[in-house]
């Protein structure tokens, strides 16, 4: 498989504090890739630099063969930030169509995509409400809908399921699997929930700005001789010290 995303010696420092330290990572097209790690480990900084909204101190990111940052590339990336970036004064639908209209899309397609995305996150009936009246979970779902409204080839989701109830979380994961299987989308997910990590094709353990280990969940478990990913994480952390 071609390398959909290729990260080479990527570093980021804010002042003297290093957040990422020469990270190398290859993510193939059409896979669900999980970035697992505690908060403050550099996951968010890493995904922001893949999107191109944060500039690296060193190293390069290439997405679909193009060097990031690249404006045209953003048409192919759907990004869901960790904090819900929504306009509370506007309704769910107004939020969705505002973001959708920033992408190149025909008017008819745009309407279709808005309906599709809203339905996917089960918000169709709530679209007329102002976002200020939404619950935390609803805001999360709306953010997810916005990330995929323009039908991007690559989805980058920063903690997409925080604050979402287990049932909806399951249905969102099923949908992500479907997007991967049927449309060949590349999906990058950050999470600190281990059972979500199990669902990824491949994962990378991120800690203190570096990648401790990467591979399929089974490979990692075998390599560290443990039965679950939690064990891998603890073991990898100890080895690093």
């Amino acid at each position: 498989m071609d390398n959909s995303i290729s990260i080479n010696k990527l570093s980021k420092a804010y002042g003297k504090t290093a957040v990422l330290n020469e990270v190398d990572l290859q993510i193939a097209g059409g896979e669900i890739f999980g970035l697992i790690g505690p908060s403050g480990s550099g996951k968010t900084t890493l995904v922001k630099m893949i999107v191109g909204i944060d500039s690296p101190s060193g190293g390069t990111v290439n997405v679909l063969g193009k060097r990031v940052p690249n404006l045209a590339l953003l048409q192919d990336i759907g990004y869901m930030a960790q904090s819900d970036a929504l306009y509370p004064e506007l309704t769910g639908k107004e939020n969705l169509s505002f973001f959708a209209s920033l992408y190149k899309m025909k008017q008819a397609v745009l309407k279709e995509r808005i309906a599709y995305a809203a339905n996917l996150v089960q918000l169709t009936d709530e679209l007329g409400k102002k976002v200020s009246a939404y619950s935390g979970g609803m805001k999360r779902r709306l953010s997810l809908a916005i990330a995929l409204v323009h039908d991007p080839q690559i989805l980058i989701l920063d903690e997409p399921t925080v604050g979402i109830d287990p049932e909806l979380r399951l249905s969102i994961w099923n949908e992500l699997m479907l997007l991967k299987r049927e449309q060949g989308k590349t999906i990058i997910v950050t999470t600190h929930v281990m059972d979500e990590a199990e669902k990824c094709d491949r994962i990378a353990m991120v800690r203190e700005g570096g990648i401790l280990a990467a591979g399929t969940p089974d490979e990692l478990k075998a390599a560290y001789g443990v039965t679950d990913l939690e064990g891998v994480f603890l073991q990898a952390g100890r080895d690093a010290k």
């Binding site: 999107v51 404006l71 990336i77 990004y79 930030a81 970036a85 920033l102």
Partner: peptide, 14 residues
């Protein structure tokens, strides 16, 4: 502050 500016810049807007 709300992060929408960053989100905006994740779209192809100039």
């Amino acid at each position: 502050v709300s992060g929408t500016l960053e989100r905006l810049l994740a779209t192809p807007i100039r």
